[in-house]
Design a protein around this nucleic acid. Structure first.
Length: 334
DNA sequence: GTTGAACCTTC
DNA sequence: AAGGTTCAA
């Protein structure tokens, strides 16, 4: 049992029906900026900021709020019915068993001044360990879209095609039973119910038409997701097997899915399978490798090769630091 | 093997 | 123009 976090250190009391704030089992501290980069910097698409230091997010069957204490430590709260499940799930999701600073220290920053600057700028930046299938769905949506738009597509998919996570079916039927016993007609037919829907699973997506997917603002990505869902439905176990494969084999298999090329496959393996050797090459990395490493005119595949050699077995972690730094440099300074 | 256009929609 | 993939030249 994690002890409740000291109430005075948390900016607000938990909402009713939610657990007390609890500390996470990690001594690491985070700045609001680094936490924002972790939760909302393009790894995941289901977090929204609720204040300077609090976030509301979903992954798997979980709904959770995260808060930063005055000392920069993490605390969390979830709907009471989910609390037992969310605690351990969140530790896995944030990959808190690994110390990110120790990990980052093994990167070649001693011989790479630019990397050293990126590490200093985002201390404690870490790679999430998201559910594999959800990560695949998110990055199938990502082609030529900005984070805001990807979040919008994913939110529509969840609202329209994902199962409600709250209240639990048990809660709901007990509510309905009680209401029936009391003869209260208003709760017999609960409203379109809850604000929280999980993302549709791949079997659920297989039952959604391409037209319905297009209605979720997916555009040409609707066909990719539809075809991928059909394939996965015809090959049960394929996704779980892929997740367990070594990096290169897993990437090959992912790239055989419609709409999945090298970049998307690397993102899925990095952010959804903990494969820190994956080095996704997107337009930001192409820019940064050209500007900071002198690789003007290099092709994505060449940059990926350079990245894996130069940054080593944790190239994906380095990639995330470079990515965060380059995007921050491009934004107007606060 | 390489290059370029097409693919949807929205900020 | 946007964090890409695919298909055809």
């Amino acid at each position: 049992m994690t002890p409740p976090a000291s109430r005075s250190l948390i900016p607000e009391a938990p909402a009713s029906g939610w657990s007390e704030w609890q500390r996470l089992p990690s001594a690491e501290t985070f700045s609001p900026r680094v936490l924002a980069e972790i939760l909302d910097g393009g790894q995941a698409f289901r977090w929204q900021r609720t204040s300077d230091v609090t976030w509301l997010g979903q992954f798997g069957d979980g709904v959770v709020r995260i808060a930063l204490t005055a000392e920069g430590q993490l605390a969390w709260s979830s709907p009471s019915s989910l609390t037992a499940h969310v605690g351990p799930a969140l530790v896995a999701y944030l990959d808190l068993a690994r110390d990110s600073r120790t990990l980052a220290d093994t990167l070649p920053w001693r011989s790479d001044a630019h990397l050293a600057r990126c590490l200093e700028t985002f201390p404690g930046l870490r790679i999430l360990r998201q559910p594999f299938g959800e990560t695949l769905l998110g990055f199938l949506c990502s082609a030529t879209k900005q984070i805001v738009q990807i979040k919008q597509m994913v939110a529509l998919l969840a609202d329209r095609h994902g199962a409600p996570v709250l209240p639990t079916t048990a809660d709901r039927s007990s509510l309905a039973n009680r209401a029936a016993a009391l003869g209260d007609p208003s709760t017999l037919n609960p409203q379109p119910s809850t604000p929280f829907h999980r993302l549709p699973t791949w079997p659920e997506l297989a039952a959604v038409s391409e037209a319905e997917l297009r209605a979720c603002l997916l555009g040409f990505r609707a066909r990719y997701i539809h075809q991928t869902a059909q394939f996965l439905a015809a090959h049960p176990g394929w996704l779980a097997e892929t997740e367990a494969l070594p990096y290169a084999a897993a990437k090959d298999r992912l790239c055989s899915l419609p709409g999945v090329g090298e970049k998307v496959a690397d993102c899925v393996l990095l952010f959804g399978a903990g494969r820190l050797e994956a080095f996704p090459v997107d337009v930001w990395i192409i820019k940064t490798m050209a500007a900071r490493y002198g690789l003007q005119g290099w092709k994505p595949a060449q940059i990926a090769q350079f990245g894996r050699v130069h940054f080593g077995p944790l190239a994906g972690l380095a990639q995330q630091y470079l990515f965060a730094y380059e995007r921050a440099a491009a934004r107007p300074p606060v």
